[in-house]
């Protein structure tokens, strides 16, 4: 063996040693994070599935395989009725919240992006609800929408709309509009309850700042040359917005759409404070149903199964968005 080869193998050995030390060090650095995430995120996810296989009210009972899932989905009429109604309420809630949230935020962000005096003041105000805790904000909102003491009914009263019960109103809004106009609206077209609409209004208000913030960032990324070139081609304001701003903002819109939808699917605190799932269960979303099953009825096994199902719904939605919608997003 030549001297050079010995030196080489020594270097290789020392590299290996260094590699081992580096590996050990890296795992030492990661250990705290892995330990806590493992104990409170990963293991519980496994336990959620485990618990959902048991009859488990106050204490762990008999193993029943997938029966909890079957009960929720079709086997037990009370449970399955509650589940599907809640899922449909959740989807309705998302449908009447997310599009409005995005549209309003888009308009405000677009206007706010212009060179204007006092822009920072506007921005500070718009972000306020977003930093306020949901419990406090919803407590105040309940009072703002109070049928007698709140300003909303007073304002509506001045245009001739009186006596709305907001968070206590189980009637669908289309039905209410129909009744006011003297048109009979069939039950299937009754629409979301006024209470759910109230919750949606809260949600839009609460998260408006967040969406504006993201859109402002996106607007800042659009190269101005595009606008100038288009203007030379004689494009008008609307065309500029429609053909340049909107497409180039699509990553942000897509992002806000995803985050907002997941946020709505998981919403709990605002509904708990404003309606607690009532009236007549018209605002009982899946998260509320899960909470009541678990905390009010003490049905831990069934609650866990609902948690797993909700996770699957969210996962499916996310995958769908990234597979189908994600492709259509233009990354400029």
């Amino acid at each position: 063996m030549s001297g050079g080869a010995i030196a080489q193998s020594e270097r290789a050995a020392s590299r290996r040693r260094r590699g081992l030390i580096e590996n050990a060090q890296a795992y030492l650095f990661l250990l705290p994070a892995i330990a806590f995430l493992g104990l409170f995120k990963i293991l519980p996810a496994v336990y959620a599935v485990y618990i959902s296989f048991f009859r488990w009210d106050v204490v762990q009972g008999a193993f029943r395989g997938l029966d909890n899932y079957f009960d929720i989905l079709w086997q037990n009429s009370t449970r399955s009725q509650a589940w599907w109604q809640s899922l449909s309420t959740t989807v309705t809630y998302a449908l009447i919240t997310v599009p409005f949230e995005i549209a309003i935020a888009l308009v405000v962000a677009y206007v706010l992006f212009q060179k204007l005096r006092g822009r920072d003041i506007y921005r500070t105000i718009y972000y306020l609800p977003y930093v306020t805790s949901t419990v406090a904000a919803a407590t105040v909102f309940f009072y703002v929408f109070h049928p007698q003491y709140g300003i909303v009914n007073q304002l509506l009263g001045s245009i001739g709309i009186t006596g709305l019960k907001w968070f206590q109103e189980p009637d669908g809004i289309f039905q209410m509009i129909g009744n006011a106009l003297g048109v009979a609206v069939p039950d299937w077209a009754a629409g979301p309850s006024l209470a759910l609409v109230g919750v949606a209004i809260f949600s839009i208000w609460h998260f408006l700042g967040f969406q504006i913030l993201i859109f402002l960032g996106g607007l800042g990324n659009i190269p101005l040359e595009y606008y100038e070139a288009a203007k030379l081609d004689g494009a008008n304001q609307w065309q500029l917005f429609r053909r340049i701003t909107l497409p180039l903002l699509s990553p942000q819109i897509f992002f806000v759409f995803t985050i907002a939808t997941i946020g709505v699917l998981r919403a709990f605190n605002e509904i708990f404070i404003l309606t607690n799932g009532g009236p007549l269960d018209t605002t009982r979303t899946v998260t509320l149903l899960l909470f009541k099953t678990f905390f009010q009825q003490g049905q831990i096994g069934l609650g866990s199964a609902m948690g797993v199902l909700l996770t699957l719904v969210i996962l499916a939605f996310t995958l769908f968005q990234f597979r189908i919608l994600g492709r259509r997003v233009e990354y400029g």
């Binding site: 109103e169 189980p170 009637d171 009532g278 009236p279 007549l280 269960d281």
Partner: peptide, 10 residues
């Protein structure tokens, strides 16, 4: 729920 249904005409 029954009372709510009756008083709201549901």
């Amino acid at each position: 729920d029954m009372l709510t249904k009756v008083t709201t005409g549901k």
